[in-house]
């Protein structure tokens, strides 16, 4: 159980899917808590990522790009 070095190296980009490193630092979450936390946090991240991007940013990027082209 005290597997400090056996952690996988790849990232868990989906949130908290990995159970590997949970023994590090003596911090261990119950798998059920970890799964629940993962779902809650994933929902939060997805909500933020899917918020509409204000037009002002695409306008700004277009302006910056146009300015760059003028310089060349």
């Amino acid at each position: 159980m005290n597997n400090k070095t056996g952690g996988r190296e790849e990232a868990d980009a989906d949130g908290f899917q990995d159970a590997d490193g949970s023994q590090l630092d003596g911090v261990a979450l119950d798998p059920k808590v970890q799964a629940q936390l993962g779902r809650v946090f994933r929902a939060y991240c997805d909500d933020l990522i899917h918020q509409p991007i204000p037009d002002k940013f695409t306008v700004l990027l277009a302006k910056l790009e146009a300015k760059q082209r003028e310089k060349k």
């Binding site: 952690g7 490193g21 590090l24 630092d25 911090v27 979450l29 970890q34």
Partner: peptide, 21 residues
């Protein structure tokens, strides 16, 4: 390794603040 340990501490703390444990 620091990333991993921070992540684990952060998860545990987040679970605590959310009242999950």
């Amino acid at each position: 390794g620091t990333v991993k340990s921070r992540l684990n501490r952060a998860r545990a703390k987040l679970a605590e603040h959310l009242g999950l444990l």
